[in-house]
Amino acid sequence: MAKIKIPPVLRPSVGGEKEVQAGGEDVGAVLRALASEHPATQTQLFGADGQLNRYVNVYLNDEDVRVLNGLDTSVGESDTLVILPAMAGGV
């Protein structure tokens, strides 16, 4: 199972955990497994079209999955996914 690091803003949706594990052969499958286990994350991660919300960044071992194969990027047992919601605002 891949390790998923959960940002503070999503932790209430996963019972306060900083890190969870989920299985899947690619990034999409791992994130869908996370959403299946923790339904509140579904709309936080995915849009109605099933793609990542544009304000959600996902990194696989420090590489942005958008520059790899997106949700189709292969994931191994020892890989780590990091979910980082984009921040907006400023002066």
Results as ranks from 00 to 15, higher is better:
Lys5Val: 09
Lys3Leu: 11
Asp49Gln: 07
Leu45Pro: 05
Ala88Tyr: 12
Gly89Pro: 00
Leu52Pro: 10
Leu31Val: 05
Asp79Ser: 06
Asp26Gln: 03
Leu34Phe: 08
Val20Gln: 04
Gly76Ile: 14
Ser36Val: 01
Asn57Gly: 03
Leu84Tyr: 04
Val27Ile: 06
Val9Cys: 03
Pro8Thr: 08
Glu77Lys: 13
Val91Leu: 14
Val82Met: 14
Asp49Phe: 09
Leu68Ala: 02
Leu60His: 07
Pro7Phe: 00
Glu25Val: 03
Leu81Tyr: 08
Leu71Cys: 05
Met1Tyr: 08
Ser78Asn: 15
Pro39Phe: 13
Val9Pro: 02
Glu19Leu: 12
Leu34Ala: 08
Ile4Cys: 01
Val82Ile: 12
Asn57Leu: 10
Leu68Gln: 04
Gly15Ile: 14
Arg54Lys: 12
Gly50Leu: 01
Val27Arg: 10
Gln51Asn: 11
Glu17Thr: 09
Gly24Val: 08
Ser78Trp: 13
Met87Val: 14
Gly16Ser: 03
Gly28Glu: 07
Gly90Pro: 08
Val67Ala: 12
Val82Tyr: 14
Gln42Phe: 11
Leu84Cys: 08
Glu63Gly: 01
Val30Thr: 01
Gly16Trp: 00
Val67Gly: 07
Val75Gly: 01
Val30Glu: 00
Glu17Phe: 10
Gly15Leu: 07
His38Arg: 14
Ile6Pro: 15
His38Ala: 11
Gly70Tyr: 04
Arg32Met: 09
Asp72His: 05
Arg54Met: 11
His38Cys: 03
Gly16His: 00
Ser13Met: 11
Leu31Cys: 08
Arg32Glu: 08
Pro85Glu: 02
Gln42Ser: 14
Ile6Met: 06
Leu81Lys: 09
Ile4Glu: 00
Gly47Glu: 09
Pro8Phe: 01
Pro8Asp: 02
Leu45Gly: 09
Thr73Lys: 09
Leu31Thr: 03
Gly70Glu: 09
Gly47Cys: 05
Leu84Ile: 15
Pro12Ala: 15
Gly90Glu: 10
Gly15Lys: 09
Met87Gly: 08
Gly50Glu: 07
Leu10Ser: 02
Val58Ala: 04
Asp64Gly: 04
Glu17Tyr: 11
Gln44Ser: 13
Pro85Cys: 03
Val91His: 15
Pro8His: 05
Leu45Trp: 11
Glu25Ile: 01
Pro85His: 01
Ala2Ile: 09
Met1Leu: 10
Gln44Glu: 15
Val20Cys: 06
Glu63Val: 13
Leu10Arg: 03
Thr73Gly: 04
Gln42Tyr: 11
Ile83Leu: 10
Leu84Ala: 11
Gln44His: 13
Gly47Tyr: 06
Gly28Val: 06
Thr80Trp: 12
Ala48Met: 10
Tyr59Pro: 00
Met87Pro: 07
